Amino acid sequence: MSSLKLDAPKIPKELPVITLQEGKFEPEDSFHTGIISDCIIDNQSAYKVAFDKVIFRNVTFTRIAMKEIEFTDVIFDRCDLSNVDFTEATIHRTEFRNCKIIGMDLTGSTLRNILFQDCLGDFATFRMANLKQITFHTCSLNNSDFYEATLQKLQFEVCQLEQAQFTGTKLDGIDLSTCEFTSLGVSIEDLRGCIISRGQASVFVSLFGIKLKE
């Protein structure tokens, strides 16, 4: 498991059930201390909705555009967040466990102390996001987009990163040595200080049109 120290979500052991009323979320709605499970949240569009000390378990999000959403001390357990629009979100002390986050859009978001564990996140977007104290552990992030993102104390552990986009993102201190990929979108300047394995060296050589002589 991750060697990076993360602040875990601060959630009470006993939680009441939160029942979401039919209808639409309203701007600046807030939900505190409870569990939302075994349901579908569908066709919602609102901004600055906040969730604090909440567990989502086996919840499917469909047709969701909730910009500037806030999650603090939240756990997503076996949820499907594919293609949700969470642009400019603020997310603190949150865990995504065994979730589908395919195409999730977190453009311009701020993430702190986040664990992505065993998630399917192909085509997820973190463009121009600010990520600090983040662990991606055994996640599929093929074709994900970290264009011009700010990465601090971030770990990719045993992840799939085929054709992930890192253009404009400084990878100094980022360890990719346990990840699998044959192609990345990245510049030589961005790679300075990046940690890779010996086996990955040939991948980067080919990326920049250099030929190795046997």
Results as ranks from 00 to 15, higher is better:
residue 27 P to N: 15
residue 184 L to K: 08
residue 47 Y to M: 10
residue 118 D to I: 02
residue 201 A to V: 15
residue 147 Y to V: 11
residue 4 L to G: 07
residue 209 G to R: 04
residue 116 F to P: 09
residue 85 D to A: 11
residue 179 C to R: 03
residue 87 T to F: 03
residue 114 I to R: 02
residue 93 R to Q: 13
residue 208 F to I: 04
residue 18 I to C: 03
residue 38 D to R: 11
residue 206 S to V: 05
residue 157 E to M: 06
residue 4 L to K: 08
residue 173 G to A: 01
residue 53 K to V: 02
residue 138 T to C: 06
residue 139 C to Q: 07
residue 141 L to K: 02
residue 79 C to P: 05
residue 142 N to F: 02
residue 207 L to I: 05
residue 179 C to Q: 02
residue 63 R to Q: 13
residue 199 G to A: 05
residue 33 T to Y: 02
residue 27 P to D: 15
residue 15 L to R: 05
residue 4 L to E: 01
residue 68 E to W: 03
residue 62 T to N: 13
residue 182 T to C: 02
residue 104 M to R: 07
residue 207 L to F: 07
residue 20 L to A: 11
residue 63 R to H: 11
residue 78 R to G: 00
residue 62 T to R: 15
residue 66 M to R: 04
residue 53 K to Y: 00
residue 100 K to E: 03
residue 70 E to C: 08
residue 142 N to L: 04
residue 8 A to C: 07
residue 23 G to Y: 09
residue 13 K to N: 15
residue 18 I to M: 06
residue 116 F to H: 04
residue 177 S to V: 03
residue 47 Y to D: 13
residue 75 I to V: 15
residue 124 A to S: 14
residue 48 K to W: 08
residue 130 N to Q: 13
residue 99 C to P: 13
residue 63 R to E: 07
residue 65 A to F: 00
residue 158 V to D: 10
residue 19 T to H: 12
residue 12 P to M: 10
residue 70 E to M: 13
residue 140 S to N: 14
residue 201 A to K: 15
residue 9 P to A: 04
residue 8 A to H: 12
residue 32 H to M: 04
residue 151 L to T: 02
residue 54 V to T: 07
residue 183 S to K: 14
residue 101 I to W: 11
residue 188 I to Q: 15
residue 193 G to L: 01
residue 169 T to E: 08
residue 189 E to S: 13
residue 161 L to R: 06
residue 172 D to N: 14
residue 126 F to K: 06
residue 151 L to R: 10
residue 124 A to W: 08
residue 143 N to R: 12
residue 31 F to I: 10
residue 13 K to I: 00
residue 205 V to Q: 09
residue 199 G to Q: 12
residue 83 N to Q: 12
residue 29 D to C: 04
residue 29 D to T: 11
residue 87 T to H: 12
residue 93 R to F: 07
residue 118 D to V: 03
residue 83 N to C: 01
residue 52 D to I: 08
residue 127 R to P: 00
residue 113 N to Y: 08
residue 2 S to F: 07
residue 72 T to H: 09
residue 151 L to D: 04
residue 43 N to M: 06
residue 29 D to Y: 06
